[in-house]
């Protein structure tokens, strides 16, 4: 039920994002979703790719610092209050969302949102318990 995500440290200077995508492209790694958190000095680029380990390996070989993190991909109804309902479930069991971002592709007509929780297992259990669809890793990489 967990999805692997890689995070990459990126300095705030021109060409660094291009370099990451170039390295991944050459390794035939396809980016499925991404988000970028940035400060004036640096950014943290988070990616979901079709081949996580390969992506990590080639980026490290190009001197990037890469972390692997477990996130959760949740199917969110594509209608008003769809996201609010999901967040309410999490709030009810007092689980914090560290960050979240949307997936480009849809799944069975619904939106897919990637969540990073402080407690991944409890979050998954809570969502499943309330009938929310949580996507498996393999599903996400192939979306």
């Amino acid at each position: 039920m967990k999805v692997e995500q890689i995070s990459i440290f990126i300095e705030n200077k021109s060409g660094r994002l291009a370099e990451v995508s170039r390295v991944l492209g050459e390794a035939k790694v396809n980016i499925r979703a991404l988000s970028l958190a940035d400060t004036s000095d640096f950014g943290i680029l988070r990616l979901i790719v079709d081949r996580t380990d390969e992506a990590r390996k080639v980026l490290q070989a190009h001197n990037f610092t890469v972390n692997k993190t477990e996130v959760v991909a949740v199917e969110v109804p594509d209608r008003p209050a769809g996201l609010a309902e999901i967040l309410q479930i999490l709030d009810d069991v007092q689980i914090n969302v560290e960050y979240m971002y949307a997936f480009v592709e849809r799944c069975s007509g619904n939106a897919v949102i990637i969540f990073r929780f402080d407690n991944v297992d409890e979050a998954i259990a809570a969502l499943l318990g309330r009938g929310v669809n949580v996507l498996k890793g393999e599903q996400v990489y192939e979306l």
Binding site: S7, F9, F42, I44, R46, T65, N67, T69, Y99, R116
Partner: peptide
Amino acid sequence: VNDQIFFDEM
């Protein structure tokens, strides 16, 4: 930066 001091969370 290296693995020890890089965090996924801002």
